[in-house]
Design a binder for these strands. Structure first.
Length: 492
RNA sequence: GAUCCGGUAGCUCAGUCGGUAGAGCACUUGACUUUUAAUCAAGUGGCCCUGGGUUCGAUUCCCAGCCGGAUCACCA
């Protein structure tokens, strides 16, 4: 510990000085009776003449200090707010006042005192007693600019949270979003369930998994990439309305809208199809936006988005025609040629459905800003979805796109075990042909379907992206407390 | 994986056409009894991301690397 920062050693000396005075720099507990937010709302309307007789007991972190000789101002911050305190040598006496003067920004203290309005009109707490609760040994970022460095903000989120109020707000909103979704689904009669994170066979999405290993069983396990296959087993088991909000893990690239682990909501409703699920999705999201903003619109990155139901609906076929002038029903050679003309390399896309999906991804998605349901996908890219009732080249599936991001994905669930088995076989073939994201054969899932799964509608919603929209966050890293970053590899 | 941008004090940032560095905040000391990005004065604080090269001399120029960001690719 010889290379301690000078400011740290100053603070360690102060800490020792406190101990020498018989003051513990790390108290065990404190009777924090009055959250600062409550104090502020209760006493904000005081006038300079008002005298309050109630003594309050508050606690928080010192975030600013303004000394004026024998009187001093500062601010303490707790989870609910920031309040000014005022200390005067006549009230505290010389010893205590001097101790208070030597506190550092970052220290956590308890204060008792009465609220009053300062001459400049700011609600303040007149310090009668104060208690050292936690000594802070490392200086906080500068008060005016906060912490700007993105890498530091993500790696040391604790500092980011102290320094930047809007970050605290973002994560409060995140918590509220999850709470409201649960509330909405509970009210609709959905039961929350938990399924395994460690999978012997992974599936439910097209993605590469993280692998791990069970030592005593000497077994390869995968971190789940989706919740789907276990939840549908539960529908087979008789649960008719279930959901899970859980972390999934995908071993893929990292970007402003991709984090290797993210939070997925999946729900399944028996005796429903994808049109029912679409209505549910619409009402869930529009109500969520209304609850959190008081209206149906929100501004995301400077663009106003309207979540008033009904959202726009567009078949994949119409979308392709409109945005790429491609007729989805054309022969596959024509589609390949069209793709080539659009500058797209589809040589590695084996089936017509893959070609169609690829053209869609490259030409349509980035144009969809307002909430839009894209409906009816080719069967080849949707191995778990049920074929469309009047066109077996398609499946009953929709995605919800907002601000060019996929927010939701849903379908009428495939419950024909024979068709499901064949689709898995196709996936296995694709995997053998080099598609690293194709599904594994899941015999037990097929076996489950053989007992009979009622007609079922299923939905997946990327919670992180919903939170991005609701908090106007440009990157998924801004809505995940500790986003994945590469490790620094020189341990010095 | 590709391209571009960035990495200088705890934080926010200047700067050095190549001669080992500055400001503001924070911290220390002093002044100041109603301030609020408090003020004034004097200080402390730097492997200028890492490694090589060029050079008498590199934080600066060149090359490679590491980390981050953006865009693209990938991710239905």
């Amino acid at each position: 510990m010889s290379d301690v920062h000078p400011e740290e050693s100053v603070r360690v000396e102060k800490l020792q000085a406190l101990r020498a005075q018989g003051i513990s720099p790390f108290a065990h507990t404190y009777d924090k009776a009055n959250p600062l937010g409550e104090v502020i709302s209760r006493y904000q309307s005081l006038t300079a003449e008002d005298v309050v007789e109630t003594t309050l007991s508050c606690a928080g972190r010192i975030v600013a200090k303004r000394g004026h000789g024998k009187a001093t101002f500062g601010n303490i911050m707790d989870e609910s707010g920031t309040l000014q305190y005022y200390a005067n040598i006549n009230i505290l006496g010389e010893t205590a006042y001097n101790t208070l003067l030597h506190l550092d920004i970052g220290d956590i203290i308890g204060i008792t005192g009465k609220p009053f309005k300062s001459h400049k009109g700011e609600l303040s707490l007149r310090v009668e007693t104060f208690t050292m609760l936690t000594k802070s040994l490392h200086p906080l970022p500068e008060k005016f600019h906060g912490l700007q460095d993105k890498e530091l903000r993500y790696r040391q989120r604790y500092v980011d949270l102290i320094a930047n109020e809007e970050v605290r707000k973002t994560f409060k909103t995140r918590s509220e979003v999850v709470f409201k979704i649960r509330e909405f689904l509970n009210q609709k009669g959905f039961m929350e369930v938990e399924t395994p994170v460690l999978h012997a066979i992974y599936g439910g999405a097209a993605a590469r998994p993280f692998m791990t290993h069970h030592n005593t069983l000497d077994q390869t396990l995968y971190l789940r990439i989706a919740l789907e296959l276990h939840l549908k087993r539960l529908v087979v088991g008789g649960f008719e309305k279930i959901f899970e909000i859980g972390r999934v893990f995908r071993n893929e690239g990292v970007s402003f809208k991709h984090n290797p682990e993210y939070t997925l909501l999946e729900l399944y409703q028996a005796y429903a199809d994808y049109t029912d699920v679409m209505a549910l999705t619409e009402s869930l999201l529009s109500q969520l936006v209304f609850t959190l903003t008081g209206g149906y619109t929100l501004t995301y990155q400077g663009v106003e988005l309207n979540f008033k139901a009904p959202f726009k609906r567009l078949t994949l076929k119409d979308a392709l025609m409109h945005y790429a002038q491609v007729d989805m029903d054309a022969p596959v050679e024509v589609l390949r040629e069209k793709a080539q003309n659009l500058g797209l390399d589809v040589s590695h896309k084996p089936l017509r459905g893959h070609v169609i999906q690829y053209i869609y991804d490259k030409t349509v998605e980035h144009n969809l800003i307002q909430p839009t349901f894209i409906v009816d996908y080719p069967w080849e890219t949707s191995p778990l979805a049920k074929r469309k009732r009047d066109d077996d080249r398609l499946v009953e599936r929709f995605e919800l796109i907002v601000s060019a991001m996929e927010i939701a994905n849903a379908f009428s669930e495939l419950n024909d075990p024979i068709d499901q088995y064949e689709r898995f076989l196709d996936q296995v073939k694709a995997r053998e042909a080099g598609d690293t994201e194709a599904h594994q054969m899941d015999e037990d899932f097929v076996h489950a379907l053989k007992y009979g799964m009622p007609p079922t509608g299923g939905l997946g919603i990327g919670i992180d992206r919903v939170v991005m929209l609701l908090t106007d966050s440009p990157s998924i890293r801004d809505v995940i407390f500790f986003p994945h970053l590469k490790q620094h590899d020189n341990p010095q």
